[in-house]
Each structure stands twice: as C-alpha cells, then as structure tokens.
Simulated assay, not measured.
Amino acid sequence: MLKSRLLRYWKGNKRVISTKVHKVNEKAKKRGPERKLTVEQELIMVFLKLRLNLPQVLLGDIFGIRQSLCSQITTTWLKILSRLLKNLIIKPSKEEIKSCLPKSFQELVPTARSIIDCSEFYIETSNSLDIQAATILLSVLLT
C-alpha cells in the first residue's frame, strides 16, 4: 500500500530546478500542510469522480475540503492509477480491429478504431442502509 506521507500532490507542470536525489526519512512527517483525508478517503473520492463525474465543488463539500485541494488530490491519484494500470490496457492493431468490426460499421465508418459501449446494469438492493451503502461502494470499485 502507498505510504501516505510519501505522496506528493500534483501542482501542475513545473520545471525541475535541482536533480539531487534526497533520502526519504521514514520517521519524518509529510512536508506541507497536514493531510485532511486518509489515503482510503482520497481513493474513494477519486472513484466517485470517475464513476459519477461529480463536480469538484460537490466532492469538496462531501469530504469537507477546498475545491482546489480536491482537484490536486484527483489529479495526483489519476496519475498514480494511470501508471499502475497502464499495462492492463491492450490496444489492438488496425488490422485486428478491422477484422472484428461489424459489416455495417465497415461500410458506414471504415476508419472507426473503437466502439464505446455505455451499458448499465440494475440490481436489487437491500432495505438495510448499511448494506445499500456497501453495495454502492462495491459497484463503484468494480466498474
């Protein structure tokens, strides 16, 4: 698991002035302001942003943080997740795609590279609010 004190928030593209490598002191506190959310809360916030596309203002209100901090956390985690999960994305060649496209697409849109399917699945939920919350969280994490 990521060590929360070693996580640096994204603050935009900046030039690197120094190329020195600094040793990380495991007992040292995280530089900058104190962490407002736990690592788990930050990750849940990012999943909510990805799944429901909630505005940063609303996410900030839900988690009790400023909109700018919400944006920094979201960007930081998206960069981390993209690096960790990039090997799971398989991009087939043009020939493989063309061979699998339906005939109608080959005729109407011969240059199509992909088809995006936005399917939704409805499930039954329990009357218990705790179980409903767990179901929603699980569905966000699995999709």
Score class of each variant (00 low, 15 high):
Leu2Ala: 08
Leu2Arg: 05
Leu2Cys: 08
Leu2Val: 15
Arg8His: 11
Arg8Phe: 12
Tyr9Gln: 06
Gly12Phe: 13
Lys14His: 07
Lys14Phe: 09
Arg15Tyr: 06
Arg15Asp: 04
Val16Trp: 07
Ile17Val: 03
Ser18Leu: 09
Thr19His: 02
Thr19Ile: 12
Val21Cys: 07
Val21His: 05
His22Met: 04
His22Gln: 03
Lys23Leu: 14
Lys23Ala: 07
Val24Arg: 03
Glu26Ser: 11
Lys27Trp: 07
Lys30Gly: 04
Lys30Ser: 01
Pro33Ala: 09
Glu34Asn: 13
Thr38Ala: 06
Glu40Asp: 04
Leu43Ala: 07
Leu43Asn: 03
Val46Leu: 10
Phe47Pro: 01
Leu48Ile: 14
Leu48Asp: 06
Lys49Val: 15
Leu52Asn: 13
Leu52Asp: 09
Leu54Cys: 06
Leu54Lys: 01
Pro55His: 01
Pro55Ile: 10
Gln56Arg: 11
Val57Tyr: 01
Leu59Glu: 04
Leu59Trp: 06
Leu59His: 02
Gly60Lys: 11
Gly60Cys: 09
Asp61Asn: 13
Ile65Leu: 07
Ser68Gly: 08
Leu69His: 10
Cys70Trp: 12
Ser71Phe: 10
Gln72Leu: 09
Ile73His: 04
Ile73Cys: 06
Ile73Lys: 07
Thr74Pro: 07
Thr75Ser: 12
Ser82Thr: 15
Leu85Arg: 14
Leu85Lys: 12
Lys91Ile: 15
Lys91Pro: 03
Ser93Asn: 05
Cys100Gly: 03
Ser104Gln: 01
Phe105Tyr: 02
Glu107Phe: 09
Leu108Pro: 02
Leu108Trp: 05
Thr111Arg: 10
Thr111Phe: 15
Ala112Cys: 13
Arg113Asp: 08
Ser114Thr: 12
Ile115Leu: 01
Ile115Glu: 00
Asp117Cys: 09
Ser119Leu: 05
Phe121Met: 02
Ile123Glu: 02
Ile123Val: 13
Ser126Asn: 08
Ser128Thr: 12
Ile136Gly: 02
Ile136His: 05
Ser139Gln: 05
Ser139Phe: 04
Val140Lys: 04
Leu141Phe: 01
Leu141Asp: 00
Thr143Cys: 02
